[in-house]
Every structure is written in structure tokens, then in C-alpha cells.
Simulated assay, not measured.
Amino acid sequence: MFEWTKGGAYDEALRQKIRGWLDEDIGSGDITTETTIPAGAVSRAVIHVKESGMIAGIPVAKLVFDVVDSSLVFEAKVQDGDRVEKGTVIAVVEGSTHSLLTGERLALNLMQRLSGIATKTDQFVQALKGLPTRLVDTRKTTPGHRMLEKYAVRVGGGANHRFGLYDAVMIKDNHIKGAGGIRAAVAASRAQIPHTMKIEVEVESLEQMEEALASGADIIMFDNMPQPLMKEAVQRVKSAAPHVMLEASGGVSLDTIHSIAETGVDVISVGQLTYSFAALDISLDLNAPKGGAVK
């Protein structure tokens, strides 16, 4: 089970996003529901999965329905981080039929995407089983959804890399070109950042790795480096500066992640956790009037 991190500021920030997403979908009103369903109708909706996977986004869906209509009663049947089989009922929502149908698509969209991310992350975590290497995500997230998508990675058993450009220094190839080299880039950054902030440098060769090490980088990322070369680089760094954290990134798949971890890197970052995943198939059915039996 993965516990939802609750907090006033966090929840309110998400509520504001949900209001915006609902405005995008509803506009001037849910014309289909308003013209087909009696205003006072009350129903029971059953949310279930149509394929196996890991669930993420139950608290998010609950917030969606609460923003639509705070009188709706949302009952979770599973929790984020639970692995479920096809056909599992994951939640039941009761109340105004208008409200249920108006909030349905946004709630499902978010749960499907977050569950897809959690499911994929879990697959990568399982592929690393038995090894100390940590799996992390990247900034390759859907604009406006980073907070939720990185949450889903944590639900799946992964960890978060930096959240944005503001919370860590990551010197990549274009920074190196613009600054005039790795040494110059690290020195310029070190002179301006707080002493508590780390500097990560992306390298593609042993020569760049040696330069990053000599410059005093705290973290060295091996970008798309062949595994034999990466293994040699890891051995050199661990011998010279065991305190330096080592990260591998680029071209990581379920088939290669275990062998990449065996090179001795501390962290492996995988962009596809949040940009190349299959949404989990989740459906909502108006089951019966309030008090009716679940199918």
C-alpha cells in the first residue's frame, strides 16, 4: 500500500488544477446529461478495472468528484499501490447522477494515466529486484501534470529525480558547450548556488568523466554510454572518489535495466516511465439507483 501524502497546500494546489481541467471539459455545461437525465436523479456508480495492473490516483479521483459535488459519497475499495486483477471494483461513488456523469471522464482520465505510470514503474522496479540500484524518473512529463505523474512513479516503487529546473543543477551537453567546458560550467555554478545544492554533470565519454570528476561534480550521469565503457567508468570513479554518485540514463528498457545496474551505478533514470506508458483501462458504470446491488 502507498499512502497518499496529504497536506493543505498540496491538496489545494491539486484542487485548483482540477477546477481548470473541469472548466476545459464542462465549459458552459454538460449538455448531454442536462438534457437526458432528470435533475433530481440519484445513482450509484461502480469504478472497475478492465485489465490487470497497479492502481494510482484513487485520492485524485475522489478529489475530482468532491470538486464537482461535495455531496457525492466516494468509497475506495482499493488503495494506491495495490496490484489488482481484471474486473476488480476499485471504488463506488453515490449521489447526484448529473454530478457523477459530469466528473466521470476527468476522474477516469487521471486514474488511467496514473495507474499506467505506476504499473510501468512497478515493472522496472521488479526488473531491478535484488540489486541496490535506485530507479528514478525524469522531467519528461506531461505539462501541467508533473506533480501527479511523479506521484504515480513513487506509487509504483520508483523515486523522483529533480522536479524542475529550480531544485538541482544538471549540467548537460548544451550547458557544457555554452560555458566552454565542464570545468568552466561546474566552477561557475558552484560559485553561485547554495552550499546545500548538488551539481550533476552529464558525460558521454571517459574523457568527460575524468573532467567532471576533476571539477568536483557531486553526481556524474553516464548518458547513452555503452555498458562495457560504463562499467570501466564506474570502476574508475569508485576507486578515485567513492562519494560521487553515479547515474545511468538513455536507452534504458526492461530488457537492459538489470545489466545496466550490474555495472555498479547508483541510480538509473528512465524517461519512458512518464512519457511512454499504456494507460490502464478503467471504466465507470452507473450500476443502479442508490441502494442497488453492485454487479
Rank of each mutant, 00 (worst) to 15 (best):
G271F: 04
T263I: 02
E262V: 08
L254Y: 10
D255P: 05
V244T: 10
F277P: 03
S276G: 11
P242C: 10
G264H: 12
H243P: 03
L273F: 15
Q272M: 15
I260C: 07
S239C: 12
S249G: 04
G271L: 05
E262N: 09
G250H: 07
H258A: 13
V252Y: 05
F277S: 04
T263H: 02
D266Q: 09
L273P: 00
I257C: 00
I260N: 05
V237Q: 03
P242D: 12
D255L: 14
T274S: 14
V252A: 09
Q272C: 15
G250D: 05
P242V: 12
T274A: 12
H258V: 01
L246Y: 02
T256Q: 04
P242I: 13
V270N: 02
H243V: 12
S259H: 13
M245P: 05
H258Q: 13
S269T: 08
A240V: 11
S239P: 01
L246M: 13
T256L: 10
S239V: 06
I268H: 02
V267D: 01
I268P: 03
K238D: 02
P242F: 13
S249Y: 04
Y275C: 11
L273R: 03
H243A: 14
S269F: 07
I260A: 06
S249T: 05
S253K: 11
I268M: 05
Y275T: 06
L254E: 13
I257H: 02
S249F: 09
A241D: 13
M245T: 12
A240D: 14
S249E: 03
T263S: 11
V270H: 01
E262M: 15
A248H: 05
H258K: 14
G250E: 09
A241Y: 03
A261V: 08
P242G: 03
A261R: 01
T274F: 07
T263Y: 04
S276R: 08
L273W: 08
F277I: 08
T263F: 03
E262Y: 04
S276E: 12
A240H: 11
A261C: 12
V270P: 07
S253I: 08
S269N: 12
G250Q: 10
V237K: 03
V267T: 11
V267R: 00
Y275W: 11
T274W: 03
I268S: 05
E262T: 15
T256Y: 00
E247N: 13
A240N: 10
T274Y: 08
L273I: 14
G271E: 11
I257N: 01
S269Q: 10
Q272S: 15
D266W: 11
V267N: 01
I268Q: 05
